[in-house]
């Protein structure tokens, strides 16, 4: 309860803004909400959440909006940033300060790196980063960690294989930063040469002494992986369509490859999936990515409730 109280009024910009106790407190609350959703159906009555999405992301926006609605709160949403004040040249700082006058909490997605930090600096109400360029996506990290905790029963002593776009995929960056704080974590980083993790992030992990193996193929990692985290190669992260088309189909999880994964391993994916996981994989009980999406809503409910101080 103490850690939840400590979150009241705070913004969440980076996955590392929260301590491990705060993570655990949110996970415990998410678990409690998931067990008995009606008990929390009025928790945010009278509160308003604003979602400001400057780039498309139906899924994350819906997850936040569903979370707020299930807590009994209300939602303000910019339907299309192209028609909003942004198109008229309003600065982000001004948009944020204006919206902060209407809402108790702002959820921001923006294509530029550091946008959430800027917003949090100017906003008198808490700001939750729902993705800033290729940098951070902390609530996806909460979702991912909570999913791993739910299915594996722990967040320590795990071998985690991450596959796909490790260079531009912000979910991956946040996940690696989130997991590195737990003891006994080992990473297999599977990507083509062009999409390896950025050097500063590699340096950060190395400085922490995290065992890390970079590899171009997934086969060797699967028999050892407790968690296989698949990611999409995102078209919008490329300047050149030829590069995108060449790399998109590089790493696909097929039923044959899934056969190599540990018996009790799990497969996560931030969704949406394009081609990187074959549909035939979905029926395998180790494929938990749709449960992951639902768990993400519960952990966002926990975060909203904690930040608004209503629990």
């Amino acid at each position: 309860m103490g850690a939840e109280r400590a979150l009241q009024g705070r913004s969440l910009v980076n996955a590392s803004d929260l301590g491990l106790e705060e993570y655990e407190s949110l996970f415990a609350l998410a678990e409690s909400i998931g067990r008995d959703p009606p008990a929390y159906a009025e928790a945010c009555r009278g509160k308003i959440l604003a979602t400001l999405f400057y780039e498309p992301s139906t899924r994350t926006r819906l997850s936040f909006e569903a979370a707020m609605l299930r807590l009994g709160g209300q939602v303000l949403s910019v339907a299309d940033p192209g028609t909003s004040s942004v198109a008229k040249g309003e600065s982000l700082a001004d948009s944020i300060r204006t919206v902060a006058g209407y809402a108790d909490l702002i959820v921001l997605r923006h294509p530029k790196e550091g946008a959430a930090q800027l917003a949090a600096h100017y906003s008198p109400v808490p700001v939750i980063n729902a993705g800033d360029g290729a940098r951070e996506h902390p609530t996806q990290t909460l979702t991912d960690l909570y999913t791993i905790r739910t299915f594996k029963g722990r967040l320590r002593d795990l071998t985690v294989a991450v596959c796909g776009d490790l260079r531009y995929g912000r979910t991956v960056h946040s996940l690696l930063r989130g997991l590195r704080r737990y003891p006994g974590i080992r990473f297999f980083l599977i990507s083509p040469e062009e999409l390896r993790i950025p050097e500063p992030l590699r340096d950060e992990l190395a400085a922490d002494g995290i065992p890390l193996t970079e590899m171009p193929e997934m086969e060797a990692a699967l028999p050892q992986a407790d968690v296989l985290y698949m990611t999409r190669v995102q078209k919008e992260r490329f300047f050149n369509e030829e590069d995108y088309l060449r790399l998109r189909d590089f790493y696909i999880l097929t039923p044959e490859r899934l056969g190599l994964l540990k018996e009790d391993g799990i497969v996560l994916h931030p969704l949406p999936r394009v081609t990187e996981i074959a549909y035939a994989v979905d029926a395998d009980p180790r494929a938990v990515y749709f449960q992951q999406a639902r768990l993400g809503m519960y952990v966002r409910m926990a975060l909203i409730a904690a930040v608004l101080g209503v629990i």
């Binding site: 982000l92 294509p111 530029k112 790196e113 800027l118 360029g133 290729a134």
Partner: peptide, 9 residues
């Protein structure tokens, strides 16, 4: 891609 590239203030 940095936010400061467009938010000049």
């Amino acid at each position: 891609r940095c936010i400061t590239s467009t938010e000049g203030y």
